[in-house]
Simulated scan of single mutants.
Amino acid sequence: MNKMKIATLAFGAVLLGGAGFLINGLPTVAQAADMTVYKSDSCGCCGGWVEHMRKAGYAIRIVSTDDLMPVKTRLGVPDSLWACHTAVVDGKVIEGHVPAAAVDAFLKAPGASRGIGVGGMPTGSPGMEAPGYAPERYDVMRFGGSAPARFMTFEGANPVRR
């Protein structure tokens, strides 16, 4: 083969590869992440949070349990952040009604934190939407290795700039 044919073939391969990215888009954290969620079958707000995460692109596997205490203890979730469900994604722990935007940001952020969580059940957080009630402002906390610290602040499912 002469140099011209090789150059033409190489250019064609680059063009086809670029077309693949245009058609499929760049992969995102959510497209690549499988999430395991530990929750009770009877909890409706947990189901709402799972749907929020599915809409954000996460593949969800549910482990049904009515005794979450051993799960939270094994995964190192601080008592102050305990909520009604616990998830694991890419080896990191997500506790409670954490918005998908915070999960995405946390999975992209370098660091040794074990996980993030929202203690309790803030009104307006994903799964806790209540028509006619204003969403609360709440903090998503980073934990593991030291005392929990603020990671992001939200009002409902929307990040709040500080």
Rank of each mutant, 00 (worst) to 15 (best):
V14W: 01
L15D: 00
L15V: 02
L16R: 00
L16T: 01
L16G: 01
G17C: 10
G17I: 09
G17L: 14
G18D: 05
G18P: 07
A19P: 00
F21Q: 05
L22C: 10
L22S: 05
N24A: 14
G25M: 00
G25E: 00
L26R: 10
P27C: 06
V29D: 01
V29T: 11
Q31H: 06
Q31V: 00
A33W: 01
M35C: 01
M35F: 07
T36P: 02
V37W: 07
Y38I: 05
Y38R: 03
Y38S: 03
K39G: 07
S40I: 13
S40V: 12
D41R: 14
D41W: 03
D41C: 00
D41V: 14
S42R: 09
C43Y: 08
C43D: 04
C45N: 05
C45Y: 04
C46G: 05
G47T: 07
G48S: 03
G48C: 11
W49K: 08
H52C: 03
M53Q: 09
R54P: 04
A56P: 02
A56Q: 01
G57A: 11
Y58V: 01
I60W: 01
I60M: 06
R61L: 02
I62Q: 10
I62S: 04
S64P: 01
T65L: 07
D67W: 03
D67N: 15
D67A: 13
L68K: 03
M69S: 10
P70G: 05
V71E: 03
K72T: 02
K72F: 05
K72Y: 03
T73C: 02
R74F: 04
R74A: 15
R74L: 14
R74Q: 15
L75K: 01
G76S: 06
G76W: 06
V77M: 13
P78E: 14
P78T: 12
D79E: 14
L81F: 11
W82N: 11
A83L: 09
A83Y: 06
C84G: 09
T86C: 13
T86D: 11
V88L: 05
V89G: 03
I94N: 11
E95Q: 08
H97Y: 02
V98C: 06
P99V: 12
A100F: 04
A100D: 05
A101Q: 08
V103C: 05
A105T: 14
L107W: 01
K108Q: 15
P110T: 15
P110Q: 15
P110C: 08
A112I: 08
A112W: 04
R114H: 11
V118Q: 03
V118E: 06
G120L: 12
G120N: 13
T123G: 13
G124P: 08
S125H: 09
P126H: 00
M128K: 09
A130F: 10
A130R: 12
P131E: 12
G132S: 09
G132F: 02
Y133E: 15
Y133V: 15
A134N: 14
R137N: 13
Y138N: 11
Y138S: 10
D139T: 07
V140Y: 06
M141L: 14
R142Q: 15
F143R: 10
F143K: 09
G144W: 02
G144I: 10
A147P: 00
A149R: 09
A149I: 04
M152W: 04
F154T: 05
E155T: 10
